[in-house]
Design a protein around this nucleic acid. Sequence first.
DNA 1: TCCGATCGGCACGGTACCGTACCGATAGAG
DNA 2: CTCTATCGGTACGGTACCGTGCCGATCGGA
Lengths: 215, 215
Amino acid sequence: MPDGEDGTRLGGGDRSGGPERRPDPGRGPISRGAGARRRVLEAALAVLDADGLGGFTMEAVARRAGASKATLYRHWPSTGALLVDAMDATYRPFPAPATGRLESDVAELLGAFVALLRDTPFPRLLGSFIAAAEREPALAARHADLTRRRREPLVEILRRARERGELPAALDLELTTDLLTAPFFYRRLVAHHPIPPTLVGEVIEQVLGPHRQRR
Amino acid sequence: MPDGEDGTRLGGGDRSGGPERRPDPGRGPISRGAGARRRVLEAALAVLDADGLGGFTMEAVARRAGASKATLYRHWPSTGALLVDAMDATYRPFPAPATGRLESDVAELLGAFVALLRDTPFPRLLGSFIAAAEREPALAARHADLTRRRREPLVEILRRARERGELPAALDLELTTDLLTAPFFYRRLVAHHPIPPTLVGEVIEQVLGPHRQRR
DNA sequence: TCCGATCGGCACGGTACCGTACCGATAGAG
DNA sequence: CTCTATCGGTACGGTACCGTGCCGATCGGA
């Protein structure tokens, strides 16, 4: 596999003027061991968010983390390995609503998801991960696992609803989860269309509406 | 947006409608004008497919095209501008089936789409475009337009079916198109899950099934 | 046929990043 | 408190790409 060698200029931080020094002034003295590792991973995500894959460089990450390149190379042999760990570090357990009613649970979850797509660096990072995963099988595998973990709460909501009899027993939960979430990825990353506040309700209505069953 | 200059040509859309009547102007001696332009754009896509955004470099594209850097800079002021034109060059009109029956038309179209995702460099290029578009508004706008053009045939099929009375008059065609296509993007680029041959039928059944109407 | 516009080749100085090595400092465990 | 593994800082040669300038060659329209 092509070892690293990544250096795009597309979003690249070609700063010909100032040296852009930002070693995170607010932090304490120096943290070692796991602390340093965490700091570097945070810096890696910050760099990826700011400058994309093109700016994702050992030097850039080290600068942002206030670390030395040597420290980075001690932990990660390549930018690819660093990217894998940084991607893993983006996982945050999604709040699983349990109002007990199918529609409101799903609406709440999808609403939080839309907010994540609209108000956070998440989609920008996701774009970089998608592009990188096309060329690094290790990253693709990790991202597949990450995605599975993120989907879990929604699948669980659907499963419970099915057990309560609100959804047909024969309904394919994985496919339904795809149909509920994929349009939002698609609009944000592919079609570059705005996501109106009403979309969550419309998707739920069109996907779940026909299958809704009275208990 | 760290890149200060970012010289993407927004209005430079000289999509030549010119009648280019050469049998194979590819590897002839030297081709000038539109020929050179086409050769460079092909090389740009080849480089992007092979090495991703990381390898997308004026030098690399020039090498692959058998052109000189000077030629590239004569046409495109930056890699961003080159990427925009290269992306536009990926558009191929999708064959619009017109069997006259909703299900078979959609199945045929989605089948071709799945083949595109499975057997061609398309998804790999798409990944790069997605990542780059997150950082280049000009690219995002172009990609939005490209996507709209690619969706058109499917929307048209749904519209005709609605006019024939096979779909409810109140059905949101755009949303339905999203629901029909987004899962495939999602599986291929985000979830990294295989797309079984049965998926097309399942998606059609779950999305269109409940709305099917007898005329 | 002819001439101008375009091309490929080449070279240039400048910049950024790579990957490694060595240093003195210090955090953090015992 | 002591000791050591880890850290930040610095430096290095090497590589790749940038963007520009200038050639002579040659395509391609008049």
